[in-house]
């Protein structure tokens, strides 16, 4: 720095000239590769984004009928024409909010609509969701899946924040007059965990990324905001 200060204005000017000459020389040398690199990078970006736009337009036409398995819990008449599939999370407030709508639809369209419930616990944001799913499955082992399901949604605010959710769920099981020893064993079983994981994987493969996600006769539907919404969609499918 000191050295630079000592230079006269003229010398400084010359130095700058020399530097820029150096730059130009270097620039000339790598000129072709430089522009080639810029063009290749530009073409890659352009091509990629054109492809994304193109494929997203196509995806809208293709993704309408997804492959759903029959895994999950069935509620309503087996022979019903319309199947409503719900990917749900017991700790999800949005799911609890829509629970009465689903119940009402099942009642109003008894024999025409059936519900297939699939687990999709969002374990990253809901710490007790996985345990809740396990509790419902363990109750299901004793034939009381839907009783536990209803209870979990009803008392969501009671258990969502607790540290030891398993203990609370055992309490619920006792309230439902389940064999609590068997419940505890099933709760921790690999079998139940695998069943839930399988349903989560199925949801991921179908593009489910939030709960609740509803499918009506294999087609994903907009999440209903009111019962009227849901009713309209069902009427269309009937």
């Amino acid at each position: 720095m000191d050295q630079e200060k000592d230079l006269t204005k003229k010398q400084k000017k010359e130095l700058r000239k020399l530097e820029s000459l150096d730059h130009e020389k270097a620039a000339k040398k790598s000129g072709t590769t430089k522009w080639a690199a810029i063009i290749i990078a530009g073409a890659l970006f352009l091509g990629f984004f054109i492809y994304i736009i193109y494929s997203s337009k196509q995806a809208k036409n293709v993704q309408t009928t997804a492959k759903l398995t029959s895994g999950g819990w069935l509620r309503g008449d087996k022979a019903a024409k319309v199947t409503l599939v719900e990917f749900s999370d017991f700790q999800c407030p949005a799911c609890a909010f829509r629970e009465p709508m689903v119940q009402q639809a099942l009642k109003e369209y008894d024999g025409k609509v059936k519900l297939l419930y699939k687990h999709f616990p969002l374990t990253s944001i809901h710490k007790n969701a996985m345990n809740a799913s396990k509790a419902s499955e363990a109750a299901g082992k004793q034939g009381k899946f839907w009783e536990m399901h209803d209870l979990l949604f009803e008392k969501q605010s009671e258990w969502e924040g607790v540290a030891d959710s398993k203990k609370v769920f055992i309490g619920y099981a006792e309230g439902l007059k389940l064999d609590s020893e068997k419940f505890k064993k099933d709760f921790d079983s690999k079998e139940i965990e695998q069943k839930i994981t399988k349903e989560i994987d199925e949801g991921i493969n179908l593009g489910v990324n939030g709960t609740p996600t509803f499918f009506l006769n294999g087609k994903v539907i907009d999440t209903p905001v009111s019962y009227e919404d849901l009713k309209k969609t069902i009427e269309e499918a009937l």
């Binding site: 040398k29 790598s30 690199a37 990629f48």
Partner: peptide, 19 residues
């Protein structure tokens, strides 16, 4: 001489690859 050019290609491929 060409380090920046090569880097541009590598970074572009990595960015688009991740996308």
């Amino acid at each position: 001489d060409n380090a920046t050019s090569f880097s541009l290609i590598v970074a572009t491929v990595a960015t688009l690859g991740s996308l």
